[in-house]
Design a protein around this nucleic acid. Structure first.
Lengths: 208, 208
DNA sequence: TAGATTGTTAATCGATTAACAATC
DNA sequence: TAGATTGTTAATCGATTAACAATC
């Protein structure tokens, strides 16, 4: 029985990964939990606890081999086995995500982009020909990509979500507001940029 | 002496706000912590604890007046006193943020947008004429907007940040990666979309 | 070997939940 | 008044930190 990993730990994994990538690029071969902690503003204890949720990646008296640790975390996060992703909604935000190089090397490969607006369907954007969402089932013909990025209007997100779930898609990166569902066999990562913005507003008020 | 509010509480405030806005739009006049909890997947206790960090907004035996509570949280978050914001970096993501209506009514008013690329400086985007970042001091002439949105390349974010801090800007909504600073009189809200993406990748791996 | 640093158990701290008196 | 629900204190739970034996 696999122990349940707390959300706090999972949210730190990408940060470890980013840090290890940085120092690896700088040529570091080994690192101690003490040094990681110092650089990332965490306690050495926390780092050792976090890593030991997944395995003993270090060596007593030595520390951690940077490249090995990086590769292990990449495996844990799933970054080393890219999954097919599609994008629904080619507005400003959708285009921004399409254009960024973040998807590749972060666990996903973008294969297709969809929209419903006649003004973009058929057009070429960032090397993708925008397809009509109505044809998506035909396009995939029983198969399903691992993940869909939702950058559609708030008003249509639930309808689009339902359609994609019916196709068998199990992962969603959702920029389109609240999704209503009780399916627990589906992974949804909600990005609420307005919440982030309001948190900043609060912080700025506190400075006064 | 004001008690320090935990980060967990602060991150929930925008969610309360969003929920209250929704039910207010649906015509609800009053609500109990029990009902809020049910709708948002939190315990009634937590909601009462959270709100009582800021004051007693309810009434025993009755519950909370939705509109009053909403307005109080808006005040706490600072959404009801909009602050000047500027945008640095008019690429895809910058344009997406410019185009979204999220800024207004979320505590900020976008007044100016800047870039350094000759291909956009001088052009008109979403009703804003893109100005050159080199002229920003002249533009503001000693004044400083409350917040800057950073959607610049990772490689230049620290340089841009330093420039803006020198101008007196105290709030940053940062989409451009790691900012190095030890200033504690400055509010920085980092948005790491790659981290969000990797967390989703992890979650999808767990479904298998 | 001696020194260093992990892996892991125990202690602490903080956040969430439960309970209940106050009171509308 | 009786019923409902808050505000708040106390109990619990979980996450972080400290300590230290294991061991490279």
């Amino acid at each position: 029985m696999k122990a349940i990993i707390s959300n706090a730990v999972i949210r730190r994994l990408p940060k470890y990964l980013r840090y290890l990538d940085t120092i690896l690029a700088n040529g570091s071969k080994k690192i101690s939990s003490r040094d990681i902690g110092e650089a990332m503003g965490l306690t050495p204890s926390q780092i050792r606890q976090d890593l030991n949720c997944f395995g003993g990646f270090g060596q007593q008296g030595y520390g951690y081999n940077v490249e090995f640790l990086r590769d292990e975390i990449r495996k844990i996060v799933g970054v080393s086995s890219p999954k097919e992703a599609i994008l629904i909604g080619c507005g400003n935000l959708g285009s921004a995500i399409m254009g960024s190089s973040n998807l590749n090397d972060r666990g996903f490969v973008l294969t297709d982009v969809f929209d419903v607006s006649p003004s973009v369907v058929g057009k070429s954007l960032d090397g993708f020909t925008v397809k009509h969402l109505d044809n998506i089932e035909k396009e995939f013909n029983g198969r399903a990509p691992a993940m869909a990025i939702l950058t559609v209007p708030k008003s249509s997100v639930n309808e689009v979500f339902k359609k994609l779930v019916d196709m068998g898609i199990k992962g969603f990166w959702n920029f389109s507001g609240e999704i209503e569902t009780d399916r627990i066999d589906i992974a949804i990562e909600d990005v609420h940029l307005e919440d982030s913005l309001m948190t900043l507003s609060y912080q700025i008020e506190q400075l006064k």
